[in-house]
Amino acid sequence: MSNIKQNASEEAEFAKPLYTPIKRRSFFMYAGATAGATALLLSGCDDDNDNVVPNGTVSLGSGDVGVLNYAYALEQLEAAFYAQVKATPAADFSAVEKDYFSQVAAHEAIHRDFFKAAINRDAPGKIIPTLGAADLNFTSIDFTKRASVLATAKTFEDLGVAAYNGAGKYLKTPAYLVIAGQIVSVEARHAAYVRDLISNGSFADDSIIDPATGLDKAMEPVDVIAAAQPFIKVKLDASNVGK
């Protein structure tokens, strides 16, 4: 919300939904940290963040909607990966592994679809474009080999956990923080499980959990996007996420 341009039309835009008479039912939406407060916050964060900037880079945006778009981008990546795994399962998967990927594919598709619905509802016009098959780059993954697929799943899940852990502090809306918390623990469950599939007992080993503090990793949005960028052809800009 740093470079708000103040002009009459934007001011009118801010106030528009609030000028309509408040009926008793909708009035309660304005009380407390509920959807009402969310709408107020988002209408306040009306930064100049048209998603696609001239050089083809996609800006994830700023403020809370930036964090939501950031999560949406990562969930799209995960969902597309698992959809591919489910469509072309490696021949050397065990039955347990095939089942794991089928279930996790549904979880990640739900996260993706949920963020899409939530952003379109709470911040109309602010959502980043869909990352379709043509926008992703999975050439480094050998989907025919169990080891390659499991290693990629581990990378994505651990990265997802670190991403949510590092992004929570950028959310201003309590309801969104709770949602992020509800999702990150599921990502952590996935991460633990896929790690155990690779090597039983590595669910929370010293390579991922600091043995001195017992803390999982937390990463800043720009670092997470840098790590994910090799799998995404379109360039993502996370530099304003949460700001």
Binding site: Y164, V184, A188, R189, A192, A204, D216, A218
Partner: peptide, 10 residues
């Protein structure tokens, strides 16, 4: 949050 996700892994 960094503790929370460790509990989830456990």
């Amino acid at each position: 949050l960094q503790i929370h996700s460790v509990e989830a892994r456990h």
